[in-house]
Amino acid sequence: MKLDLKSVDQIIGKYDGEDSWLVMILQDVQDKYNYLPECALGRVAESLKIPLSRVHSVATFYSSFSLAERGRHLIRVCDGTACHLRGFTHIKEEISRHLGISEGQTTKDKVFTLDVVACLGACALAPVMAVDGRCYGNMNAEKVRVVLDLYRREKRH
């Protein structure tokens, strides 16, 4: 697959081609393509005049980066301490059961990707999950199904 890399150039231009913004440049690239395509990383290295090995190293160090293509909706289940104590495992298992994927995987139809994150910072509403950055608090198995179906229906429209 050939990707249009003009967006990468635009992003780098926004940061004046400064390699110290590498972490944020990669975030913006990921926002654009939904993951970090190999060729985009190559372009980043080339434009910033830094070794590709450094770009690859950074792209694999931080947990929010994904080198594999992801689903349209990113589900992040919070495994912060409060969520862990208040039923993180049920929530994660319910999602897995409902979508047939486990942590780090993407559904076959490329609609959902399931990630587990350290803490979303909404501990008072534990257990919490977020879909595409929107937080859902006080979750239980039933609410999980309701929320996921909401996003799934959205796809059909």
Binding site: S20, V23, M24, Q27, V58, F61, Y62, F65, A118
Partner: peptide
């Protein structure tokens, strides 16, 4: 503003600085 990208260790001062410089934390 410098945004982190998901690494608890970046709360450590020298790792945080490495991250702002565009390296692994």
């Amino acid at each position: 503003i410098s945004r982190g990208a998901g690494a608890f260790v970046c709360g450590e001062s020298t790792a945080l600085m490495a991250s702002i410089e565009g390296y692994s934390g």
